[in-house]
Amino acid sequence: MNVTYTKPLPVVDSLTKQYWENARSHRLSVQRCRDCGDRHFPPCDVCPKCLSDDQDWEVVSGRGTLLSWVRFHRAYWDGYRGELPYDVCLVKLDEGPLVLSNFSGNAPENARMGMPLRAVFDDVTEQVSLVRFAPE
């Protein structure tokens, strides 16, 4: 745990609070509509499929596949300056939603679209845990 964490931290609001609480206990979740069952992330104020207000957070399996990945050579935030280059990956969760994240550790040398991945959590501050993905 790093007390001088300088990278961007989440803006926790009423819509995302539950997601970040689940992440803190190392559970990956997506928003799910109780009326039509649609699963989506990031969360929306009403269900984008049926406009229902009745939505909840569903803990998902943490399994997904790699869709894409990129390597940042530019630091858009000062906190990344010492860490260039760094990787960001796009993961399609088995439950449907797409999420942007990082590889746990270095990018796998055999990275390819469709590669199976699983969620792992990184406690970056006292309050915040970030999901990252490792090869299955």
Partner: peptide, 16 residues
């Protein structure tokens, strides 16, 4: 919402 993972910029979206 993706800032905590360091993802930002239209260029990065096109790189993806």
């Amino acid at each position: 919402i993706w800032d905590p993972w360091g993802f930002t910029s239209p260029g990065a979206a096109h790189a993806l």
